[in-house]
Design a protein around this nucleic acid. Sequence first.
RNA 1: GGUACCAUAGCUCAGUUGGUAGAGCAACGGACUGAAAAUCCGUGUGUCCCUGGUUCGAUUCCGGGUGGUACCA
Length: 305
Amino acid sequence: MSSGMTNKTLVIITGPTAVGKTALSIRIALELATEIISADARQFYKELQIGTASPTLEEQKLVRHHLINHLSIYDYYNAAMFEQQALEIMNDLFQHSDYVVVTGGSGLYIDTLCHGIDELPDPDPGIRRQVKDLYEREGLTGLRHRLKQVDPQYHSEVDPANHKRIMRALEVFMSTGMPASYLRKNQRKERPFNIKKIVLNRPRQELFASINQRVDQMIRLGLIEEALGFFKERHLNALNTVGYKELYAWLANHWPLHVAVDKIKTNTRRYAKRQLTWFRRYDDARWYHPGDEQAVMDFIQYGNE
RNA sequence: GGUACCAUAGCUCAGUUGGUAGAGCAACGGACUGAAAAUCCGUGUGUCCCUGGUUCGAUUCCGGGUGGUACCA
């Protein structure tokens, strides 16, 4: 713990997509007289507005939002960069407030903010390219074989079908000369502030209805124009995103529009499910319905419901 | 009203020469430290419409009912 910040509290408001995080976090931030930092790995991108359900200008007028629209889809970004930026902003905000609200549904980013991430080099674009070439030439089997030679430890632990994990481990080895299993300490950093973790959830049917409704709303607001405006850039990671990728497939495959819209809904539901799986393993989180604002406030201010 | 066909998983359907059933999609569970709205792994969840009959045994065969579809009136 560092000097005199233990009365500071980071309030995390997370939950599956479309559960109602934005609206509640704004009300909470207003009550706590503080600002919001986003932990949403797609709202970072200024070009993505409709499809990411970014906070509107009105909402941003109510409460200042940090780390939204601060990147372009052409930029590289990762959880470690997020950690550093978010901690800097928090440090500033804690000068004037005892609370900071972080809201968003990207579990990896939230965890990184709560307990850090091991110090590893940022990937070198050249090496990343090389590893990708290896994958294309030799396939998953080739990657696995190479990993076994340089890092048998990680090879025995990693999900053998997940090419991204294996590629990353190879990339780490190629850029540091050290096996990823050695560099991955999985160490939790102590933070100089308290953390109150709130997961919002609703009955599955209610959540799915909300998702379906919101996708229809996005289409009405112009998601198709927003997405197709970047059709030529669709290979970018930032556009490998629910709501965008289905529209690119729609254009390429000449499906009727309703097919693409249904796929967006389905993939959004699955995304929500994956998020819930991630949040369920939190042993320090309180779960609330997004309508239970008073209970959430009580928990934040008094420590229980 | 008559005739024909259909009724099996949430949906679309397959199947059982009579031994209580399986595909696709959807759904559900899980993993996850620099691409994370990404990436990956796992799981059939079922009064086989109802009701009599035949049979050791019926989702399967036969009769009746109910619902649906098509055609004829």
